[in-house]
């Protein structure tokens, strides 16, 4: 079995395309705060969802670990933020590290069991543990206020203005991207990728596959927890719905929309998802129906996601350009072939 080339040694044209799309997306994503109001709300939703989905995408694309339980980390982060802010104080240096730590702690405690399984089993077990968190959030009324959720969460101190919060969220997204792109190039990332392709061989070579997976799982959970905490401060309330499996499913859809093997894919995926959601949910109360159809369509026709389709289009365009430079006949032939 061939080991994949390290991420950094991909063809240059692809990287340029990726950087270009990334800059364009970042530019677009920075537009909403200028307008404020509803578009700022959508912008924050997009960035927090993108941060969570990017964390999940790291597991899916490089670890081969398809979790359908990331809602647990999101919800834990959100509830940690809600409880700390309402009981102690909305200080970012308290709320965000604790949100990350609680999510990572849950990931470590459950990952010991879930990471022993593979593929579908891993997916089911992560789903089951997330559902446990969901049920606890409903039933442990003394702590979580049950089905009423927790409302009146104050703004994060220093980031009460949502434009500042938006900046902070983008900062986390950029930091997450930088961290993950270093991680996938690092020995840990390489071992993860190798184990995804052939676990027995990676183990036989002596790599501590389980420990690496557990560590990356916890890291992914921590960033998802921060995303959940930021979302809680943005909305001002949390509800057991934050733990619901549809939240996990949406993150997976966003990863899939963006392309499984592109770290920045979830940014595009989240932008598309939030745009479609806000458009559709304003017109129908059966928005999940369209989400379902979108998901089925994405799987049937959209292999590689938007990132994959964009990459193909870019490669096709540059091939046409090269051929066109050689002469009109060759250019026409190239266009006909493409």
């Amino acid at each position: 079995m061939r080991l994949a080339l390290p991420y950094s040694r991909r063809p240059a044209a692809g990287s340029v395309a990726r950087a270009g799309v990334l800059v364009a997306a970042a530019g677009l994503a920075c537009m909403p705060p200028l307008a404020g109001g509803y578009s700022l709300h959508l912008g924050l939703e997009t960035v927090t969802l993108a941060l969570a989905a990017m964390s999940l995408g790291l597991l899916v694309g490089w670890g081969g670990l398809v979790s359908l339980g990331h809602a647990a980390f999101w919800g834990l982060g959100a509830y940690a933020a809600a409880l700390l802010s309402t009981h102690i104080g909305p200080w970012p240096w308290l709320v965000l590290p604790v949100a990350a730590a609680v999510a990572a702690g849950f990931a470590l405690a459950t990952g010991i069991f879930t990471l022993r399984s593979h593929g579908i089993f891993f997916l089911m077990l992560t789903l089951a543990f997330a559902q446990l968190a969901y049920v606890l959030s409903l039933q442990w009324r003394g702590l979580t206020n049950g089905d009423n959720g927790i409302s009146g969460i104050p703004g994060l101190a220093g980031f009460e203005d949502h434009r500042a919060l938006y900046g902070l969220a983008i900062g986390f997204l950029a930091a997450g991207y930088a961290l993950f792109s270093q991680l996938v190039r690092s020995p840990v990332g390489q071992v993860l990728d190798a184990a995804r392709q052939n676990e027995a061989r990676a183990r036989a070579l002596g790599y501590p596959v389980f420990a690496y997976r557990l560590a990356v799982y916890a890291l992914s959970a921590a960033l998802t927890g921060i995303a959940g905490a930021l979302a809680a401060h943005e909305r001002g309330f949390v509800h057991p719905r934050d733990f619901y499996w549809v939240v996990s499913g949406v993150m997976l859809v966003v990863v899939l929309l963006g392309g499984q093997r592109a770290l920045w894919g979830p940014v595009i995926g989240a932008s598309v998802y939030i745009a479609v959601e806000s458009w559709a949910s304003a017109r129908t109360e059966f928005w999940n129906l369209f989400l379902g159809l979108l998901l089925v369509a994405a799987v049937l026709w959209g292999r590689g996601g938007i990132a994959g389709v964009a990459g193909q289009a870019w490669r096709a365009a540059s091939r046409i350009q090269r051929l066109a430079l050689k002469g009109t006949d060759a250019g026409a032939a190239g266009r006909a072939r493409v």
């Binding site: 499913g249 059966f286 999940n288 129906l289 989400l291 998901l295």
Partner: peptide
Amino acid sequence: RLHGHGRELDQVLVTFGLALIIADATRA
């Protein structure tokens, strides 16, 4: 269209999509 080895994830995602469709269709 999704039968076959190595497409388990796609099958899971499609059935998740179907679950969402069923949930809203029955509610409608």
